[in-house]
Design a binder for these strands. Structure first.
Lengths: 135, 135
DNA sequence: GCTTGACCTTGACATGATGGGAAGGTGCAG
DNA sequence: CTGCACCTTCCCATCATGTCAAGGTCAAGC
């Protein structure tokens, strides 16, 4: 199987497959005499694993660890769970940050006429016009 | 005022001030005879504006527009509100994505023993063991 | 056998916001 | 005058991904 077929079979772009190989996330693929990369069923499983992990937002570093655990039959599930929990906490932290920003902006927007007049609490806030607008 | 003082006064790093100047987000600062950048009160206001906008998660492109509106006395507040609303929607979309990923992972984690045994639904899911685990 | 088109190779560059560091000039205080 | 803190520019790195270019390869059709 060539890289293009592997790409469409796993949903990982050919570009990213080469990239993952280059950074050592996956083992270098076999090569034909002409230098084409060749992929077997095992490689496809690995690539699919990586794609699913990325879909869940894991970082490359985390995926590296998950792959190692996956390939280790003596792994402890606690190790996997720890990585997943850490990732969940990271995502929740990001959500809290986003939520804060959304809250602030929605509050400011609620007091912005949104018409032709130039008066705008959003800009006032950004300009440093104090942290409160009405309360 | 030198760049270092401007940086600590506004919370924008010297590095970023130079960067913002280079990409044309802010006007090139004045220079001393020796080539040092010089900042006045107006420049500090602009930098603070940029920092507050970044704190609210606006992209450089959005900040560029907000800055233009801020400096335009004839602006319509509707324009500002539109940018803010677009940004809020982007953030909410990101939150939904994160929430989905968190849901999935928490669900899988809940069914992972997290002990010394190798059995782990998280890895099974990543390996392509089907999208459901128990329901 | 030769052409053509689809595919492969490597390599470089871009994003976006930020940090780090090197090499060299400047300014001030002692 | 020396030393240190600060400034300058320039290059490189992150992270995941895309795009583009120049060139090699393969298979099919004639």
């Amino acid at each position: 199987m060539n890289i293009g077929e592997a790409a469409s079979a796993t949903g990982v772009s050919a570009k990213m497959i080469r990239h993952y190989e280059e950074i050592g996330l996956i083992r270098p693929a076999g090569r034909t005499g002409a230098g084409y990369r060749v992929y077997g069923p095992k490689d496809l499983s690995t690539l699919s694993f990586v794609r699913r992990a990325r879909d869940l937002g894991f970082s490359i570093a985390q995926i590296r660890d998950l792959l190692a655990l996956w390939q280790d039959r003596d792994r402890a599930s606690a190790d996997v769970k720890r990585i997943a929990s850490a990732h969940v906490e990271e995502m929740k932290a990001k959500m809290r940050l986003l939520e804060e920003m959304v809250q602030t902006l929605e509050h400011l927007s609620a007091h912005c006429h949104g018409d032709d007049r130039p008066d705008c609490p959003i800009l006032e806030q950004l300009a440093g016009g104090g942290s409160e607008c009405c309360a």
